[in-house]
Amino acid sequence: MTYYDLHTHTRASDGMNRPAENVKLAKEKGLTGLAITDHDTVAGIREAQLAGNELGVEVVPGVEISTRVGDKDIHVLGYFLNIDDKKLLARLVSLRRTRELRNERIIENLNQLGIAITLEDVKYGLGRELRPDESLGRPHIADTLVRMGAAADFRDAFDRYLAEGRPGYASLPRISPEEAILWIREAGGAPVLAHPGLYGDDDLVISIVEKGKPAGIEVYHSDHGPEDEQRYLQIAQQYDLIPTAGSDYHGVRGGVVFHGDLGTRSVSSDTVEKLRQAAGTGRVI
């Protein structure tokens, strides 16, 4: 059997590793391939593909687009999209600008709590220059809070300040999941609703599926339990969606793997071929 982890992040967004490091790790774990799905950017894919060519690991070009419905952040994954599509790249720039504004709001919230943190502190913690096509996220802010001593560890930073509903959290208006699905299709890709179990609202999940008609749904995810998997597999079957799997690997922070180790959630090559065929067609094969 051949296996692919279809949800991994690199330092092009909020992962810890270079794209080539993710590919090397996939090779070491015996995977046939992996997808690079950074938040609102495709900046890490070229490097990953070069490494994949050298190591014999297929790199599925992907992205994870940030959207919002009411008070919930919803993520949509895109696979096999054209990463040179000019309209897509311009749209991703606009999404990263929204992300930057959100980061500024989070910093303001933390300052009001008496925490003397700046965006410059966060960027300094990267240890390198941030490229224009890369993005900062809450994990970077969490790392900075830990370095400052304002949080005991990465998880504590989220639990106390950065998770939804906590005093440092902020969210700005974003595009809808349906728009993200359309953007991915227009760029020749196959859209998949990411980690539905994290939203805590299956009625909303079904509404997105019915309105947006994605090609697939991420049934198997590091934060899904067996009951979640069974429930979303049933939704996939009911709506003729491709059931996908991904670890949502972000690397290791403070000795802890976040969300799950690369390769711990995977699909066979049959699923990858279904996504490849569904890409850009508006239908499920």
Rank of each mutant, 00 (worst) to 15 (best):
D84C: 01
I45C: 11
H75W: 12
Q238F: 00
D153G: 09
N53G: 14
L262D: 04
A20V: 10
G33V: 06
D228M: 11
N109E: 09
G254I: 03
V272M: 10
T244C: 06
A150H: 08
S222V: 03
T144M: 13
A245G: 08
P177R: 11
Q234R: 14
I83A: 03
Y3D: 00
E108W: 11
L77P: 13
S171C: 02
M1V: 03
H224C: 09
D156M: 05
R276G: 06
D202I: 10
R174L: 12
Q230W: 06
Y124V: 00
G44M: 03
T67R: 14
V76S: 12
T98A: 13
N111S: 13
S268Y: 07
G282W: 01
A278P: 12
K24G: 10
G188N: 11
G280I: 00
K86T: 11
E104G: 12
E134Y: 13
A150L: 01
V76E: 06
T264S: 15
E100K: 15
A43S: 15
R276M: 02
D261V: 04
G70S: 03
T98Y: 12
R283E: 09
E108P: 01
G44V: 00
E229Q: 14
L126V: 05
E218F: 08
I175G: 09
L95A: 15
G280F: 02
V209D: 05
V272K: 14
T67W: 02
E21M: 09
E64P: 12
G280R: 03
R160E: 06
H250Y: 03
H9L: 01
V146S: 07
I285L: 11
V219M: 10
I106Y: 14
I242A: 07
N111I: 01
D248F: 13
D156P: 04
L204I: 01
F154T: 00
P243E: 02
